[in-house]
Design a protein around this nucleic acid. Structure first.
Length: 406
RNA sequence: GGGAGGGUAGCGAAGAGGCUAAACGCGGCAGACUGUAAAUCUGCUACCUACUGGUUUCGGCAGUUCGAAUCUGCCCCCUCCCA
């Protein structure tokens, strides 16, 4: 099966500029394509991971990827899909984020001669001269047309600054620049980038009379149409300091039944035939599938060892047996323990509760158990003797924390 | 620059001098039921606390008042209309 067909079967194609041309190009390994990553945070998140997977698939099919770090576009800020203006990041912050991105991407995509290329658009965007750019590129854009683009429409009501309005021009210029300097003939990206990408192909056509192509992948949404990859605390980060492998694993382990097959197809590298076979599994095997999904994705992001640990930890916790080695742990020193510690304070200390008020509520409502026994006494105090053997606190059904004596 | 309307908890949105730590919806947390899912039902959802009470909140600052999210003044920010 050719790569284009595989992408189609996996549900990875949202919009394309010219289906036949693109098909021929990527099936023959002739695409020199770019995907941009704007450094809005100090770690990539699950959404980026989708596009990285796409990059990998295309690379495996013989196409040449160019990773573009948005050191320049990050200075402007993409208004797409947002109802408010992005916080402006300092140049230092952006440079720092770019470095982190590069490191994270490098673990997944191999850079080097003949392999993937990594460039930073700050290198060409920051030196641009205003009037030159206006005459050279600005003249190719119709404001009327830009205003009808989906990415600006939402912002026409709430307000759009001139800074952000220029984002499309920056991104288009990137594509044009890469086309001229690196022979880049294609751009991939999330579906929210469609108007920006189209603008790029048009700029190239106007400036060079040549064709370049664009293909978007669907945003990963759940069965309710909401974006996936967002947890309560914000994004699902790829940095294990920001989202632990266990949390990451649990996110996928707990997705809605209706979303499992889609995620397997879109994100995992399991052969499509195997996944299609799994869609025919009877309903009672759904948990098996979720576990597989969670393991696969965690393995891709954090490596097999971490994935195995996360899987073991989850199994141990939810089947009630064995291994608690990977449970989040708090060490208590004897001196901080003193005359014993109140459970309320301990819950706050372990971050299982945000405040003592919340801790009290959890206990009142029966959400806390210690070593498997439900606690009902709000004023419970734990002494050194209680903690000689480490204790396991469970909050609700899914949150566990171990407390040991130092 | 002129005019109009706004800024209330994580978000949306009521409230227009005391009864308001602030309705309601969403989101979040917990309980019941389950399959670590969904749906449903129940409770909770500023902070501290000896659980009795206390403290700080309604863009900012300064006032009026026994009492202010609510009234006054100045300032900041946003949206719309006109230039």
């Amino acid at each position: 099966m050719k790569i284009y067909e595989e992408l189609e079967r996996r549900g990875l194609i949202a919009q394309v500029t010219d289906e036949q041309e693109i098909k021929d190009l990527i099936n023959s390994g002739g695409a020199r394509f770019y995907i941009g990553f704007d450094p809005t945070a100090d770690s990539l998140h699950a959404g980026h991971f989708m596009t990285l997977c796409l990059m990998k698939r295309l690379q495996l099919a013989g196409n040449k990827p160019i990773v573009v770090l948005g050191g320049g576009t990050g200075l402007v800020g993409d208004p797409s899909g947002r109802t408010d203006m992005r916080a402006m990041l300092s140049e230092e912050q952006i440079a720092h984020n770019c470095a982190r991105f590069k490191e994270q991407i490098g673990r997944f995509i191999e850079f080097g001669e003949d392999k993937a290329l990594c460039v930073n658009n700050a290198d060409w965007l920051k030196g641009l001269k205003y009037t030159e750019l206006l005459r050279d590129v600005g003249a190719c854009f119709s404001v009327n047309k830009m205003l009808t683009a989906e990415c600006y429409k939402q912002r026409m009501e709430k307000g759009l600054t001139f800074l952000e309005f220029n984002y499309m021009i920056m991104q288009s210029y990137d594509f044009y620049y890469l086309h001229e300097h690196y022979g880049c003939n294609m751009q991939f990206g999330g579906d929210d980038q469609w108007s920006n990408m189209l603008a790029g192909t048009e700029l190239i056509r106007k400036k060079t009379a040549k064709d370049a192509y664009a293909l978007t992948i669907p945003l990963l949404t759940n069965s309710e149409g909401k974006k996936m990859g967002k947890s309560v605390n914000g994004a699902l980060w790829l940095d294990k300091e920001k989202t632990s492998p266990y949390e990451f694993f649990q996110y996928w382990r707990n997705i809605d039944d209706a979303d499992v097959d889609k995620c397997l197809k879109m994100i995992s590298f399991r052969p499509i035939e195997e996944i299609e076979e799994m869609t025919r599994w009877p309903g009672e095997r759904i948990n098996e599938k979720k576990e597989l999904l969670a393991f696969e994705i965690t393995k891709l992001v954090h490596g097999e060892e971490e994935a195995q640990k996360a899987l073991n930890a989850a199994k141990a916790l939810f089947s009630g047996e064995g291994d608690d080695a990977n449970m989040p742990t708090t060490e208590l020193g004897k001196n901080e323990l003193g005359e014993g510690i109140g459970l309320l304070d301990l819950l706050v200390l372990t971050k299982l509760a945000a405040s003592k008020g919340e801790a009290r509520r959890l206990i009142d409502q029966g959400g806390i158990s210690i070593n498997g026994e439900k606690v009902s006494d709000v004023n419970l105090r734990l002494s050194e003797a209680d903690l000689v053997d480490s204790i396991k606190i469970k909050k609700g059904k899914k949150a566990f924390h171990k407390v040991v004596l130092k």
